[in-house]
Design a protein around this nucleic acid. Structure first.
Lengths: 104, 104
DNA sequence: ACTATATTTGACACTTATTGTCAAGTAATA
DNA sequence: TATTACTTGACAATAAGTGTCAAATATAGT
């Protein structure tokens, strides 16, 4: 089970690429990429797309890993975490088939 | 399928309580409570606990509704939403049984 | 319509988070 | 020691979230 950062770093190293090279392609400071790979910062969706391109990763799969990472860390400390996910799933199904009430 | 705001408003009305009364008990401006009930603002956990008390709602259940609401709205627009939840569940199980890598 | 009460709305100042940039730092290697 | 790769932390700029308040709007009773 890898974090998004681990996935990115492992793939980058396997391809023999440098932080400098990847960050240039993604058009961000290499300090930011370094932090992303160590899970100190979260990439934006735009960054993820570019990263998927240069690292030859599946874009959708990467996005899924990213969002699920975020959610996992968000609720891992709740002892009702798995119940939360079940309810969330129901709510999503409901929202997808109904007009969406606004939530800020 | 109710949002957290709908749950709170319905229960308040059923109990015949006014915004003013509930917000006083929770110790927040009634404007905030009004917005919470219409899903314009999110309550804090402290607010939720107080709300559960005065509205005679189950505290844990309310928390579950709250967090799942948040997650549902967070990913409802992703077309990979249900896959995300599945992966998130696996990650949580993993995180709960392992030392937790840091993520900001 | 008038009054009183309940709720909603928006502007505002304030705090807190998140962001990108940069320079100086460490680490490893030749 | 010189070079390259990476990390760290401080900084300013921006965005996001928060509580407060007063004015606007609704709702109901007389």
């Amino acid at each position: 089970m890898e974090t998004i950062g681990q996935i990115l770093r492992n793939k980058r190293l396997n391809l023999g690429l440098l932080l400098r090279q990847v960050s240039a392609y993604v058009d961000i400071d290499q300090a930011i990429l370094s932090k992303i790979e160590r899970n100190e910062r979260k990439p934006t969706k735009e960054m993820l797309e570019k990263l998927a391109e240069i690292l030859k990763l599946d874009k959708d799969e990467l996005l899924i890993q990213f969002i699920s990472d975020k959610i996992a860390y968000e609720i891992v400390d709740e002892d009702c975490a798995s119940k939360v996910l079940k309810v969330a799933e129901k709510k999503i199904k409901y929202l997808k088939s109904n007009p969406i009430p606004k939530l800020t």
